[in-house]
Computed example of a mutant assay.
Amino acid sequence: MDAPALAIDAVSHAFGQRLALDTVSLTVPPGRFVALLGPNGAGKTTLFALATRLYTTRTGRVRIFGHDLARAPSLALAELGVVFQSRTLDLDLSVRQNLAYHGALHGLSGRALKARIAELMEMVGLADRLDEKVRTLSGGQARRVEIARALVHRPRLLLLDEATVGLDLAARAAIVDLVRRLVAQEGLAVLWATHIFDEVRPQDDIHVLDKGRIIAHGTAGAVAGAHLVPAAELAPDAGTAGLEAAFRAMTAAGAEDTA
C-alpha cells in the first residue's frame, strides 16, 4: 500500500499555557482533495506550521509520503508545496523573478527552470503576465502565482491555508477550481484549510477542527448526515448550507469524533 501523502499522528502544540492543538491526527491520501474545516482560531494555521516545520513538533509525528519530518526533513519537504494564508510574494519583483527565486532555492536553474515556470504560468492562466510586477496583479491573480510558485519543484503534496481569504466570489471560485483541477489532472494531494463551507463538496474527505481538536471526520455528506442534516441538502450545485448547519450543531454540542 502506498504511504499517505500526509500523516499527522497525535500532534499537540501549546503556546505557553494555552493548548492550541490537542492530539490531532489526520491523513491525506495520495491524489486526493481533503478539507480541514474550522473557524478562525481553531488551530489550522498552527497545524500547518508544524506540518511545514516552521514550528518544531514536540508531541506526535508528521510524515510526508512516508518520510518523517523530524528525522528526514529534506526528503519530506521536497515532496511539499505550501500556500500560506499571508501573502508572501515580493511585490516589487516580476512574476518570473518570484518564481525563479523560489526555484533556485530548490536547486533549479537554467532551461529546465525557465520551461517549468512557463508550464506553470500557462496552467494557472497567467502566461501573459510573466514579466509584470506582482503589485500590478489582482488578489486572485497573485494567489494563482503563489500556487504556481508552490509547484515549481514538482511536489506531490500541496497545503493551502485559507487560500481564498479576502478574494471576491469569482476569484475565490477560480482558485478552488484550479486546485481541484490539479488534483484531478496532475494527481496532486491537497490539504485545503478553510472556514468557508461552500468550498467543500459532499464527496470530499473532511476533518473538522474546533478549539484545537478534531471533532469529526469522514466525507462532508456523511459528517453532515451524522449530525441530523440530510445529505440531500449537500447537492453539488447547491452549496453546503447543510454542512455549515451540522458544524454549528457539532460545536454547540461539543461533539466527539464521528468516525
Results as ranks from 00 to 15, higher is better:
Glu122Thr: 14
Ala3His: 05
Ala232Cys: 02
Val24Glu: 01
Asp161His: 02
Ser86His: 13
Ile175His: 04
Val190Leu: 10
Leu105Pro: 12
Ala42Asp: 08
Leu54Tyr: 06
Glu79Ser: 08
Glu186Gly: 01
Val124Leu: 06
Thr46Trp: 00
Ala148Gly: 10
Arg63Gln: 13
Ser74Ala: 13
Gly218Phe: 04
Ala72Gly: 04
Ser138Tyr: 05
Ala78Gln: 14
Ala241Phe: 12
Gly125Ala: 01
Arg213Cys: 03
Arg248Pro: 05
His102Thr: 15
Leu105Lys: 06
Leu6Asn: 01
Val200Glu: 02
Thr56Cys: 02
Thr194Pro: 13
Ser109Asp: 14
Ala51Asn: 05
Val134Lys: 07
Ala5Pro: 13
Leu93Ser: 11
Ile196His: 13
Arg135Ile: 06
Leu159Ile: 15
Val229Asp: 00
Met250His: 11
Ala216Arg: 01
Glu199Pro: 10
Ala173Cys: 03
Ser25Trp: 03
Ala174His: 04
Val11Ile: 05
Leu93Cys: 07
Val83Glu: 07
Leu80His: 04
Ala252Thr: 15
Gly139Ser: 07
Ala51Phe: 01
Ala7Gln: 15
His195Asp: 12
Gly140Ser: 08
Phe65Met: 12
Arg172Ser: 15
Gln17Lys: 00
Gln203Tyr: 01
Arg201His: 12
His207Asn: 14
Gly242Cys: 04
Ala112Ile: 09
Asp68Met: 08
Asp257Cys: 09
Arg172Phe: 04
Leu69Met: 11
Leu167Asp: 10
Leu120Pro: 04
Tyr101Phe: 13
Ala163Asn: 06
Ala249Trp: 13
Leu151Arg: 06
Val124Ala: 04
Glu132Asp: 11
Phe15Glu: 00
Leu26Gly: 07
His227Ile: 13
Gly125Leu: 06
Ala72Phe: 06
Ala118Ser: 15
Ala238Phe: 02
Ile175Cys: 02
Gly103Pro: 15
Thr240Ala: 15
Asp204Leu: 02
Val165Met: 05
Ala42Thr: 11
Thr240Gln: 15
Ser12Ala: 00
Ala224Leu: 12
Leu191Ala: 10
Val176Met: 00
Leu191Gln: 14
